[in-house]
């Protein structure tokens, strides 16, 4: 399969290792990755902060760039949620029947990474090796918008060498919320404190999720506290195999 990667603006800029792991994982599973260089941002930040007009051209760009893709892989559930939950309505409001049709046709080919692996490739065991104690945070959009359920956990349970520990209150928001973390910094900090306590109580050395954005927030707090826990997007756990010389060796 030819998989077009929408890496997301913040992974591209801040977390290239996530994208590198996604590329390595998909390629080692026998598929081809394309990365259209015209891509930028899905418009989620603008849309959710109230700047909905500004998000419209970003939607048009996304649709134009990916309309011919066989499958689009997005390693971020909140960006997938933006596209699935809001693009149809935005397109309908644009009174452009061509755009509405293009969005309708594109949506079934949009996959969050773990959806791609399980639903599209039919894999729950991707042959990964990750010999660390890991806890998984179920991000809000992954649960309540994409309804991923235990999809990511099924993939993680099949990883060789992993010591997977349940995160208490796994379904509670970490307090990131995009611009909420900035606009309501003190409340976000209070929510983060609870999440950090839950993560630290697991004794895990790695906290993972399908969204680097939540991890940036959780890990940002853990790092400030010098807690000795690091973050890894789920792709960075599913990509390495026993024959790899080390994490990120593909970069």
């Amino acid at each position: 399969m030819r998989v077009s990667l929408f890496i997301t603006c913040y992974n591209d800029t801040l977390f290239p290792a996530t994208g590198q792991a996604v590329v390595h994982l998909i390629e080692r599973l026998g598929h081809t990755v394309e990365f259209p260089l015209e891509q930028t941002c899905c418009g989620q930040m603008h849309y959710n902060t109230g700047y909905q007009q500004e998000a419209i051209p970003l939607m048009r760009r996304f649709v134009d760039i990916f309309r011919d893709a066989e499958a689009v892989c997005i390693p971020s559930s909140s960006c997938v949620a933006m596209i699935r939950d809001h693009y149809p309505k935005m397109a309908a409001e644009s009174s452009d029947p061509g755009l509405t049709r293009a969005v309708d046709e594109l949506l079934p080919r949009i996959y969050e990474l773990t959806e791609l692996l399980v639903h599209c490739f039919g894999l729950e065991d991707v042959g990964a090796y990750f010999p660390h104690r890991v806890t998984y945070h179920a991000s809000c959009h992954s649960q309540r918008s994409l309804h991923l359920g235990d999809l990511p956990l099924r993939l993680l349970r099949n990883v060789r060498g992993i010591d997977l520990v349940d995160l208490p209150n796994i379904d509670r928001c970490c307090g990131f919320g995009g611009t909420f973390a900035i606009k309501m910094g003190d409340i976000s900090a209070a929510m983060l404190a609870e999440k950090m306590k839950d993560v630290e109580n697991t004794g895990a050395e790695v906290v993972t999720a399908v969204d680097t954005s939540c991890l940036m927030h959780i890990f940002g707090g853990l790092h400030r506290a010098r807690a000795g826990v690091r973050m890894a997007h789920i792709a960075e756990i599913l990509a390495p195999t026993e024959s790899d010389v080390g994490e990120g060796a593909w970069a």
Binding site: D12, T13, L37, G185, R224
Partner: peptide, 18 residues
């Protein structure tokens, strides 16, 4: 105020890809 942020990496994903 409550979180650290890692510096921007030497290479963005797209630069790595190119």
């Amino acid at each position: 105020r409550v979180r650290d942020l890692r510096e921007l990496p030497k290479q963005t994903f797209r630069e790595w890809w190119k």
